[in-house]
């Protein structure tokens, strides 16, 4: 990705800044380039300012996490890992990390599988309740998870699932499903139907044809949808707060909130906890970053 961009830049960017003033005047072609692209400073100055706004908070957290307690230095030196040790064992972030990972991976798998089945039906069949179902999917986007806490709590209490990670996994999955299904059915529509038909002609069943033809082509889309689901469940706070009261069942966001609500906040431990919370999503994000833009521009969002 980076090398490709750098190549593109090579061919277009240099003329504007590199044109030496001593030259008798830029060639007409160059003048056209300078006209249709804004001057470099109009890109770099606002971009630089925005990068500062984005990155300083991250730096700030890292700084608090690795400098010794009581230090006010703005440079992270000397480096210490005492905050990490403390938060991982004393504040049981080690346990929270496992729980969050379990919730994230389980709801990612459930969301992807269920949405794949539903998305295939929506993309490839015409059936009586299809329009109504699509409408329900869209409408569900307006239903606030936060306002459903009370009835969901009662449901899970009746199912005797309060204080089990299962309740959180189900709740996360359900609220991921509509958008994931809409996205996946968009991706499936982009796979030509004739390819599947060709597989049937060759004697494949519908299921085998799907596995052999459609599934490999869906890989980028499934990676994007699965990663959304993982990041979302990893980050989500309210369901875990409401449904899990045992400390050894809690997830990282709840652990962070507990650290923040203490009477005197241990800033070093809080920052270290924040870094622990950030690492998995940053890795996933770096992994899917380039799919984000292309995935959305595939027209999936517009339906």
């Amino acid at each position: 990705m980076i090398t490709k961009d750098a190549d593109m830049v090579e061919t277009t960017a240099p003329p504007a800044p590199a044109a030496p003033p001593a030259m008798s005047g830029p060639a007409p072609r160059r003048r056209k380039r300078a006209w249709d692209e804004p001057p470099r400073w109009q890109i770099y100055v606002p971009l630089g300012l925005y990068l500062l706004f984005t990155l300083i908070p991250f730096y700030w957290m890292l700084l608090f996490a690795i400098r010794p307690a009581g230090s006010t230095s703005l440079l992270p030196w000397p480096v210490t890992f005492e905050h990490f040790e403390k938060v991982w064992t004393e504040r049981s972030f080690g346990v929270f990390f496992q729980n969050s990972l379990l919730v994230g991976v389980a709801s990612m798998l459930m969301t992807t599988v269920v949405a794949l089945a539903g998305g295939y039906a929506l993309a490839r069949f015409d059936f009586r309740i299809k329009r109504g179902f699509m409408l329900a999917l869209l409408c569900s986007q307006f239903i606030p998870g936060a306002l459903m806490l009370v009835p969901l709590f009662q449901i899970f209490a009746n199912l005797r699932m309060i204080n089990s990670l299962g309740s959180v996994i189900i709740a996360e999955t359900v609220f991921q499903l509509p958008l994931s299904m809409i996205l996946i059915s968009g991706f499936i529509r982009n796979v030509p139907y004739s390819l599947e038909e060709a597989a049937w002609v060759d004697g494949c069943s519908r299921f085998r044809g799907f596995c052999a033809i459609v599934l490999p082509m869906l890989r980028p889309g499934l990676i994007a949808v699965g990663s959304f689901a993982f990041v979302h469940s990893w980050n989500h706070f309210l369901f875990a707060l409401m449904f899990l009261s045992n400390q050894e069942k809690q997830t990282i966001p709840v652990g962070l909130a507990t650290l923040m609500s203490a009477d005197s906040v241990d800033l070093g431990a809080l920052a270290a906890g924040g870094v622990v919370a950030a690492v998995p999503v940053v890795i996933v994000f770096a992994f899917i970053q380039k799919w984000l833009v292309t995935g959305f521009s595939a027209g999936a969002v517009k339906g």
Binding site: L55, N235, F237, P253, L256, F285
Partner: peptide, 12 residues
Amino acid sequence: MVFSPWAVSGVL
């Protein structure tokens, strides 16, 4: 880099 806060939770 500018997109990265997208992945960060409200609590973080």
